[in-house]
Simulated scan of single mutants.
Amino acid sequence: MIQFTTWDILRGLLLATRWTILLSLVSFAGGAIVGAILLFLRIGKRKAGRIAVEYFVELFQGTPLLMQLFLAFFGLGLFGIDVPAWLAAGAALTLWSSAFLTEIWRGCVEAVAKGQWEASASLGMGYIQQMRYVILPQALRIAVPPTVGFSVQVVKGTALTSIIGFVELSKAGTVITNATFQPFTVYGFVALIYFALCWPLSKSSQILERKLNVAHRGH
């Protein structure tokens, strides 16, 4: 029987952690890009765009991420299209992230006082100028803490991709457990690694939120 040392277990998990981090970064960045586009449609003046984005957000927020992963991976297979696990995982997490980021940022835009819109309009600014020079800079400041906080959910969401065969941290934990028969040690390390990834993000979100509140009280 092959003997596995604690370092062997930890090394295998750390190697898989690279893919968890990479998938998180790709999904969050992709979700931010798609979410920014959807945000402008959501708060725009075209009714069709607002309604379409509203249904999109409700669909991805109202259904389990696990189901979305299954559909991304197996759904296209029904039409004879072979989708790699990494592509299905990235696409599903990107769309899921974009739905939540769109709503987070919409709330931040709406949190800007209406007087700012009125004041900028009185200066003869058009809608694009209002957004660029007045509204978005203020909304961005408000959006930073919840956006950083949501990144924690993206990291933890990558764990579900193991169900479609993507080998990230949790999937590697299962594989290593089957090889070593040391579930307590393996999943103890898995939990510690997830904590090491998520805790700094959670703490950063809390610090940024505290600073924002102090700044608001200062005004």
Rank of each mutant, 00 (worst) to 15 (best):
Ala89Val: 01
Thr6Asp: 14
Arg18Thr: 15
Arg141Thr: 05
Leu169Glu: 05
Gly80Arg: 07
Lys211Met: 10
Val148Gln: 05
Ala85Phe: 07
Leu10Pro: 11
Leu65Phe: 12
Val34Cys: 04
Phe28Gln: 07
Leu78Glu: 13
Lys156Val: 07
Ile9Val: 15
Arg210Lys: 11
Thr158Gln: 10
Phe184Met: 15
Met1Leu: 14
Tyr127Ser: 04
Gln129Trp: 00
Leu136Lys: 00
Gly30Trp: 06
Gly188Lys: 00
Thr5Glu: 10
Ala89Lys: 01
Leu66Ala: 10
Ser162Met: 12
Ser204His: 03
Trp86Leu: 09
Phe4Leu: 14
Gly115Ser: 12
Ala89Trp: 00
Leu212Met: 14
Ile163Phe: 03
Ile81Glu: 07
Leu14Lys: 01
Thr6His: 07
Leu22Phe: 14
Gly218Trp: 03
Ile163Arg: 00
Asp8Gly: 05
Met131Pro: 05
Trp86Phe: 15
Arg141Trp: 06
Gly35Ile: 00
Thr6Gln: 10
Gly30Ser: 07
Gln130Pro: 04
Ile9Asp: 08
Phe195His: 02
Ala99Arg: 02
Arg42Trp: 01
Lys203Val: 14
Arg50Cys: 07
Lys203Pro: 00
Lys114Gln: 10
Ser204Asn: 10
Ile164Gln: 03
Ala143Tyr: 04
Ile193Pro: 09
Ala143Leu: 12
Ser205Lys: 00
Ile193Lys: 04
Val112Gly: 06
Trp105Ser: 09
Ile21Tyr: 06
Ala121Leu: 13
Ile207Tyr: 14
Leu38Cys: 11
Phe73Cys: 13
Ser151Asn: 09
Ile37Ser: 13
Ser120Arg: 07
